[in-house]
Design a protein around this nucleic acid. Structure first.
Length: 491
RNA sequence: GUCCUCAUCGUCUAGUCAGGUCCAGGACACCGGCCUUUCACGCCGGCAACACCGGUUCAAAUCCGGUUGGGGACGCCA
């Protein structure tokens, strides 16, 4: 069996979005699973819209996700000669012809067809021009495009899709499509096939929005005398209103970089993406890289499209709750030193990193992360909700401030008293700290919770958190004492 | 409009190819309870779906037909 060769061919017209990332992921998984190769090819033939920034963005996105490739990136524009040669070959073989219809004529016809509810395809005006007429028009300098001449055959045109099964349509349903622009530059349908043939691509995994392209490209493979690769059309990802997600209409929320910037763990995001249109067939939802490669098959890709259930302006979920839940799972279960590396990036970005965290305080650093990670959702939470562990400029949230502090004015006196007692303690342990806190509560005749939760808010700024006395040990006596003494500033 | 295609809880899905073990399982979300010094931690429980109509069959979420609904494509974009 020959090696499987897959490709991810993004067009550099914007950032990498979740649809593209998912396509890349599926191709990558299948390449890994079959011991094949993944080729990265930048399809930049739309020179009007392609940008260098987009290329960088796409590469960065893939790298962040951990999707690596074996060849490339190749740039489609560097193979123009191949594309042009193929077009010429198709013309000389009689598989393509020059079309002198103007854009205006075509637009008018399309509009008329739309109005009369007719078919929108090309009507074949230039399909059978005589050689003489063609030479005459060329001599007159009339611009032309090259169209593929769809064979007039009975029966069905189609292909076998790994996901969808047999896909067919009538030959008469496909109109003569343009393969070369009037400026001489070949178009996607052709370039894509020529490149896939040259790159010896064996499997094409792409979105269902390409299904009609595939039908036409099958004709191109045939005319070019190459075998048709295996096709697998994956379901599309729709928005909550069931429209195809796009950079244009959804913006940042569908951009891969948005998730990086919101503290997602790269693999967690892959894990979320792969489940949008694929399942292992059992109840597993979390996979290591190796497990996923092992479990992944083309046959288990779903047929029906899925909805990316992001919530705009939802105070609780900034994106699909399932994505967040998966991220939380990894946040809680990954090896703590791996989490440590990722949190380090966050701390550095915020100017909170201390080199000792990698040196003599490494133990403290990792223990602290381990203590607080259970209640966090993203890597960003370590520098926001968990800021009090690493800095003095943490915010006191309003809700706990009202509920746990301002409601009990006595805390202005009580907590500084507790600070004194903590300071004088022979040994600052969780047990001792708790004993003194409860003792104080009894003295001033309030429930222990008043003292404990008041402390929580003063010391961490938060309403919730780990066991308070563990927090105290983590923050350390000096900082605890200091923060408790300053309770008055909150009133 | 034409063609292609899809159809199970709010969302992601298992089950459909090989009909009975499915008055449909899991996860997320939601609701309730427990734990507790707190909680968006944890634990336990609950709510919630086979789009519709016919047909085949002893038996249909599963097979067949139709209807409806959704999506995609119909570019000198990729």
């Amino acid at each position: 069996m020959t090696e499987t060769r897959l490709r991810f061919p993004p067009s550099p017209t914007g950032y990498l979005h979740i649809g593209g990332a998912r396509t890349a992921l599926y191709n990558w998984l299948y390449a890994k699973k079959t011991g094949g190769k993944l080729i990265l090819r930048i399809e930049d033939t739309d020179t009007e819209r392609s940008t260098a920034e987009s290329i960088d963005g796409i590469l960065d996105g893939l790298k962040w996700l951990g999707i690596d490739w074996d060849e490339g990136p190749y740039f489609q524009t560097q193979f123009s000669a191949d594309h042009i040669a193929a077009a010429e070959r198709l013309i000389s073989q009689g598989n393509a012809y020059k079309c002198f219809c103007t854009k205006e004529e075509l637009d008018a016809k399309r509009e008329a067809a739309l109005a009369s509810k007719g078919n929108l395809g090309y009507d074949g005006t230039c399909r059978n021009l005589t050689q003489a007429l063609i030479r005459e028009k060329e001599a007159a300098g009339i611009p032309f495009v090259v169209r593929f001449k769809v064979p007039e055959r009975q029966g069905k045109l189609g292909y076998d899709d790994k996901v969808l099964g047999r896909i067919e349509c009538d030959y008469r349903e496909v109109d003569d499509f343009v393969i070369v622009r009037s400026n001489g530059l070949p178009l996607y349908l052709l370039c894509n096939v020529v490149d896939d043939i040259r790159d010896r691509i064996t499997h094409i995994i792409r979105g269902q929005d390409h299904m009609t392209n595939t039908t036409r490209q099958v004709l191109l493979y045939e005319a070019l005398g190459s075998p048709v690769p295996v096709f697998a059309h994956m379901p599309l990802t729709l928005d909550t209103k069931k429209a195809k997600i796009s950079k244009r209409s959804h913006g940042e929320i569908v951009a891969v970089h948005f998730y990086r910037e919101h503290g997602f763990i790269p693999w967690a995001f892959n894990n979320f993406l792969v489940l949008l249109g694929w399942s292992p067939g059992d109840d597993r939802e979390f996979f290591s890289r190796e497990e996923l490669i092992e479990a992944f098959t083309l046959e288990r890709i779903n047929k029906s499209s899925s909805i990316f259930n992001f919530r705009k302006d939802d105070p609780k979920f900034f994106t699909d709750p399932k994505a967040i839940a998966i991220n939380e799972h990894y946040l809680r279960t990954m090896a703590i030193d791996e989490i440590g590396e990722m949190v380090r990036q966050e701390l550095e970005t915020d100017g909170l990193w201390d080199d000792d965290y990698a040196g003599e305080r490494k133990d403290w650093y990792l223990k602290t992360l381990d203590l607080i990670r259970d209640r966090f959702h993203t890597l960003k939470d370590f520098t926001t909700l968990g800021r009090a562990y690493f800095a003095e400029d943490y915010q006191i949230d309003d809700k706990p401030l009202q509920k746990n502090v301002l409601k009990f004015p006595g805390l202005q006196q009580w907590l500084p008293v507790l600070a004194d007692r903590y300071e004088q303690l022979a040994e600052f342990t969780a047990e001792e700290a708790e004993r003194l806190a409860r003792e104080l509560a009894e003295e001033v005749d309030v429930k222990p919770g008043v003292i404990i939760n008041g402390m929580r808010t003063v010391i961490t700024g938060q309403l919730a958190g780990p066991s308070m006395f563990d927090v105290l040990m983590t923050i350390g006596r000096d900082r605890v004492v200091q923060r408790l003494r300053e309770t008055g500033r909150l009133f």
